[in-house]
Amino acid sequence: MTPTRLGFWSRAWAVCAKDAAQEGKRRIALGSILFFAATALALVSYAVGPFGLPADARASLDAALLWIILFFSAATGLPRALVREEETGTGLALRAVAPGAVVIAGKAAFNFLLFLAIAALSVPTFAVLLEWRIESSAALVAVVLLGGVGLSIVSTFLSALVARAGQRNVLFLVVSFPLLAPLLLPAIAATVAASQGSFAAAPLRVLVAYDGAATCAAYLLAGAAWED
């Protein structure tokens, strides 16, 4: 009588695939993020250019600018995944069939893919426009991946909270900044090290711990965040 049931990951994957299918039709999230990232990159490179920064401060300033661009691009696009459910009114149907953990896992996976798309385009562009020398690409990839995981999970969880509140966009920035700062600061530190050619163990360890803590907290609190 009981039909075979799909597991947690298959269900979360269904959510992610559905978002990708929807995004494929309209491309609003991807479009707005890429447009934002392009604008920010153009502004930064125009303002500081490759020679606008003093040589000794370049490593840390470039790293900070890169993560500011990534953070704001993410803040523009990642909350869409859950806000859209409320705009179309489909949040109710989704609540009727799937628990919060499945929804948040699926949306976080989609947001991580979105983040990878932004990073894959904006990091090389940033490096070219600002003539930013990266001594260790492997270290940079590690930082961007670890930072991206935390950024996607925290953004997804927080957008579930703000999705049904007023003034969502401003509110998202307000609630996400203090929680993402402990991710951005070690990410910037590790990026500086990567550009100077080394794997910075201490900040990378912090990133791993942060990602783990955020994942567990988001999983446990998903029901409270998403269901009434």
Binding site: L6, G7, R11, A14, K18, A21, V97, V103
Partner: peptide
Amino acid sequence: EQNLAFFRRAAGFA
């Protein structure tokens, strides 16, 4: 059909 297919999968049914 895509809507129903999605809701079934999200609910854990083939």
